[in-house]
C-alpha cells in the first residue's frame, strides 16, 4: 500500500515536470499538446504510438527527451527486411577467457528511450518481438532472458499515407501502446520560429534538467496519486460504454479492453501529477481518453462509410457519460457553470 502524495511532493513534482516541459518546448516548437501527451505517457510508464508525416520533429522530440532526462536513446528504422534479432540483439561467437562461446550483443532495444520509426514497415514477426519487449520489458534470446533498462519507453511512429509494403499493427498489438498521438503539421507561426531558430545539420542544444533518479521518483509519485472512487467509476463506465451493444456505442465493432481502463487510470494520474494535484479527476480522464482509446476502438463498416472516426465516437461517448450516472429528474437540468 503506497502512501498518498503530499501537497509538497506534488508541488515539487509539478515544478520538475514543468522544467522538462520547457526544455522540450525549446526543442520542438508549436507542439505543446504533443509534448504534454508525451510527458503524460512517459510518467504513466506507457509506450506511445505517434502517427504523423515525416519531418515533424518526432526524432528531435525523442532526442530532446533523452538529453533532458540524461537517458540513453536509440532510433530504429523499421524496414520489411528487419529481423527480430536486429532490434533485440544477437548472440555473437566470441573468444573469451573460457574459450569460444556465444556472447549476447544487445540490440537497439537496450536503451531507455527507443524511437521505432515507421514500425508498420517491419514484418509482423519483428513487430511481435518489439511488442513483447514493450510488454514484458525484457528480451529472451536463445533461452537467455535479458532485462531491458529501466525506465524503458518506446515511441513508435507510423506513416498514415503510405500503405503499400506496410504491415498494419493488429489490434492486440496496438493495445500495448498507452497512447496513440497524432502529430499535426505546424502552422505558419511555428514554421517561422523553426526557420529562425533552427538550421539543417545543427542539433539544438539541450541541457539535462532531470536526473534518472528524479524520473524514477516522478514515476513512483504518479503511482501515489490518489484515484477517487467516483473517478475510477467514471473510467470504468467510459470504457464499458465502448462495448458494442451499449447505448451510445453505435459504429464500434470492438470496444476497449480492461487494459485500456488501466491505461486511462495511469494517464489520469500522470496528468494530475503534471498539474501538481494529489488526485486524479474527471477532467484528467476526459483529456486522456482520446489518446488512450482511439487506437483501441475498431469501427464497423457502417461507421467507416459514414465517415466516423474513433475520435468522433470517443467525443460522443464522453458527451453521454457523465461523471455521475444517477439521472436527474426531468424538472431539473444540469447547468454549465
Amino acid at each position: 500500500m503506497t502512501s498518498p502524495l503530499s501537497e509538497i511532493e506534488a508541488s515539487q513534482a509539478a515544478s520538475q515536470i514543468d522544467l522538462l516541459r520547457q526544455s522540450l518546448r525549446s526543442v520542438l516548437f508549436g507542439q505543446d499538446a504533443l509534448i504534454e501527451n508525451v510527458l503524460t505517457g512517459l510518467l504513466a510508464r506507457g509506450h506511445i504510438l505517434l502517427e504523423g508525416l515525416p519531418g515533424l520533429g518526432k526524432t528531435e522530440l525523442v532526442k530532446g527527451l533523452s538529453k533532458s532526462l540524461g537517458l540513453d536513446a536509440k532510433r530504429v528504422q523499421f524496414t520489411p527486411d528487419l529481423l527480430p534479432g536486429d532490434i533485440t540483439g544477437n548472440p555473437m561467437l566470441q573468444e573469451t577467457d573460457t574459450g569460444r562461446r556465444f556472447v549476447f550483443q544487445p540490440g537497439p532495444l537496450f536503451a531507455n528511450l527507443v524511437l521505432a520509426d515507421e514500425i508498420n514497415r517491419a514484418s509482423p514477426k519483428t513487430q511481435s518481438a518489439l511488442l513483447e519487449a514493450m510488454q514484458e520489458r525484457r528480451v529472451t534470446v536463445m533461452g537467455e532472458t535479458h532485462l531491458l533498462p529501466d525506465p524503458f519507453f518506446v515511441l513508435a511512429t507510423q506513416n498514415p499515407i503510405e500503405l503499400e509494403g506496410t504491415y498494419p499493427l493488429p489490434e492486440a498489438q496496438l493495445d500495448r501502446f498507452l497512447f496513440k498521438l497524432e502529430v499535426r503539421a505546424n502552422n505558419a507561426a511555428t514554421l517561422e520560429q523553426i526557420v529562425l531558430h533552427r538550421e539543417i545539420g545543427v542539433e539544438p542544444q539541450v541541457s539535462q534538467v532531470l536526473s534518472r533518479e528524479n524520473l524514477t521518483t516522478l514515476l513512483d509519485q504518479v503511482r501515489r496519486v490518489f484515484m477517487p472512487v467516483p473517478v475510477a467509476n467514471f473510467i470504468a463506465r467510459l470504457v464499458h460504454a465502448t462495448q458494442p451493444g451499449e447505448p451510445h456505442s453505435g459504429g464500434i465493432h470492438y470496444g476497449a479492453s480492461p487494459r485500456a481502463a488501466l491505461a486511462l487510470a495511469a494517464a489520469s494520474k500522470a496528468r494530475a501529477l503534471i498539474a501538481g494535484r494529489l488526485n486524479a479527476s474527471y477532467e484528467d480522464v476526459r483529456d486522456a481518453a482520446p489518446q488512450v482509446l482511439r487506437h483501441r476502438l475498431l469501427l464497423d463498416y457502417r461507421a467507416k462509410l459514414e465517415g466516423l472516426t474513433p475520435d468522433l465516437l470517443i467525443a460522443r461517448l464522453l458527451e453521454h457519460t457523465p461523471a455521475q450516472d444517477a439521472p436527474l429528474p426531468t424538472s431539473l437540468k444540469a447547468a454549465k457553470l
Binding site: 494535484r277 488526485n279 457523465p322
Partner: peptide, 23 residues
C-alpha cells in the same frame, strides 16, 4: 458531491478531501 465537483471544475477535490486526501 460528484455532481458538484464535476460541474464546478473542482477536479474531484471534494471526493478526495472526503476520503482524507488533500484539503
Amino acid at each position: 458531491r460528484i455532481r458538484l465537483e464535476d460541474a464546478l471544475g473542482l477536479k474531484a477535490r471534494l471526493s478526495a478531501a472526503a476520503a482524507g486526501i488533500g484539503p
